[in-house]
Nucleic acid binder design. Structure first.
Length: 455
RNA sequence: GGUGGCGUAGCCGAGUGGCUCAGGCAAGGGUCUGCAAAACCCUGGACGUGGGUUCAAUUCCCACCGCCACCUCCA
């Protein structure tokens, strides 16, 4: 039984699904107008781990991750670059998936794009208008009437009275809106912007309608789990839910939200410029260290994800990799994952995807595997090594890359030469070779079972 | 101003009303090794401040201080 912290219930609840043994989930993806930064990477890893774990414990998971490809910033950026919105969005979406591939984030089962679902959005808007929950302002578009939907504010914990107080003070309000908090579901066409035909004239969808329409279209009524970054709770998810339920649909059963990446105590954001691109972080520390850094923090917490954290994660990862190399070198047989370790792992994960505790179980297995090998007990070691392999796989860590490269043969030859020198107790020559390799970033490890190296 | 959250050892970061306990990184001391590296063992140090509840609080309650997020597009 998996307990999750449900953002709507605002407490831990049992994850109940529409169909036993199956989980349908929808996670809000990025607006593709620029390259992804490490915050996008964190969110992607978080939901990848959740998806994999739900599958690992035997569920059939349908994972939908959308991409927003029509939006103000895309339009602005395309105009600036003198290209089409379509070309710009396609280009940055390709970068996004390429980086996630490096991270070993599984591709969603479906990737709906806003421009491909305009008709379902129009249908949904028409339902809202029919039910009196949305209304037309000539020349402007169609607006959702917040006060017509009683549940408004439940997800984000906001009261309508507070919202009304805040609105209007901030930006000038169109006098034709029934309430200052009403928001556009359909925006009338403007010159130079992409638009579509609709019952309310040409225009484009409003900010939040795409996710309401696409999630219902693909996953259907009352799908199980809706996720995203916690900066989307308001207004995006609140509005998304209001539109879907306002049109008479049963919407997501559970909501989960992941924490933001911070830089020096401030949220990482494109607008503040305090971001590191995901590509740079992966180039420097590697995708596995990135994944480790992410899972060592609970998904709902804010986290720093800079050189300090990534560097520490890279060191921790090395400890794991050293074990796996050692087990291979010493010929530890395949075994069944140690039940005690697996139980600890599952207990941590079952409680709101407690990946830090899950990693503690993995590191415990690492220590015990090494201890068993130190004692020469390969049978005992095999269960712990198997647990490490199995649990890392469950968390989406790709297996250790073999030390590849053009110079492998040359390095092997040097290592062999050093072995020979050591054999004849010519330690000066042996150390010379080791220094030479160290200068090339290669670490030598001697053991009773021979010498190995890694980069 | 409104709403929500956080403050744990050098750093990152879980967790719990009392039991030797997270875990990772770093530091110190050992074992092993030709020397290293790796590994294992040991060590130190924690729960923002002030009250309260309790036999017992880091854990519950209150106040205060500090920090953050959302309230506008945002993973």
């Amino acid at each position: 039984m998996v307990q999750i912290f449900d953002s709507l219930a605002k407490r831990d609840v049992e994850l109940t699904t529409r169909v036993d043994g199956a989980v349908s989930m929808y996670v809000c993806g990025p607006t593709v107008y620029d390259v992804p930064h490490v915050g996008h990477g964190r969110t992607a890893v978080v939901y990848d781990v959740i998806r994999r774990y739900l599958e690992w414990i035997g569920n059939d998971v349908t994972f939908v991750g959308n991409v927003t490809n029509v939006e103000d910033k895309i339009i602005a950026r395309a105009a600036q670059e003198g290209t089409s919105e379509r070309e710009l969005a396609d280009r940055y979406e390709a970068v996004y998936w390429a980086e996630l591939d490096r991270l070993n984030v599984g591709r969603p089962d479906a990737v709906p794009r806003a421009t491909e679902f305009v008709q379902p959005m129009i249908d949904l808007i028409a339902d809202l208008v029919d039910r009196g929950r949305a209304y037309v302002i000539e020349g402007e578009g169609v607006y959702f009437s917040v006060e017509s939907y009683p549940g408004y504010g439940d997800l984000s914990g906001r009261r309508l009275s507070d919202l009304l107080e805040g609105a209007g003070a901030r930006v000038e309000v169109d006098e034709r809106k029934r309430s200052p908090v009403d928001f556009a579901v359909w925006k009338a066409a403007k010159p130079g912007e992409p638009d579509w035909e609709s019952p309310w004239g040409r225009g484009r969808p409003g900010w939040h309608i795409e996710c309401s329409a696409m999630s219902l279209e693909i996953l259907g009524e009352s799908f199980d789990l809706h996720g995203g970054g916690d900066d989307l709770v308001f207004p995006h998810h609140e509005n998304e839910r209001a539109q879907a339920e306002g049109a008479g649909h049963a919407f997501a059963r559970h909501w989960i939200h992941s924490g933001m990446v911070m830089v020096g105590g401030e949220k990482m954001a494109k607008s503040t410029g305090n971001f590191t691109t995901l590509g740079d972080a992966l180039d420097q520390y590697g995708p596995r260290a990135f994944r480790l850094a992410v899972v060592q923090v609970h998904y709902r917490s804010q986290m720093e994800l800079t050189a300090t954290e990534l560097g520490a994660a890279a060191e921790g990862l090395l400890r794991i990799d050293n074990l796996l190399r050692r087990a291979a070198r010493e010929g530890v047989p395949d075994g069944t994952p140690d039940p005690g370790i697996v139980t600890g792992f599952r207990a941590a994960m079952d409680h709101d995807f407690g990946t830090p505790g899950a990693m503690a179980a993995v590191f415990d297995a690492v220590r015990r595997a090494n201890s068993a090998m130190d004692a020469g007990d390969h049978t005992a070691a095999s269960g712990f090594v198997a647990a490490v392999r199995s649990l890392l796989d469950a968390l989406g860590f790709p297996s250790v890359d073999a030390d590849a490269g053009d110079d492998v043969g040359e390095i092997d030859a040097l290592v062999a030469e050093r072995e020979a020198a050591r054999g004849s107790r010519d330690f000066a020559r042996a150390d010379e070779i080791r220094d030479e390799l160290a200068a090339r970033g290669i670490t030598i490890e001697d053991s009773a079972h021979g010498t190995t190296w890694h980069r």
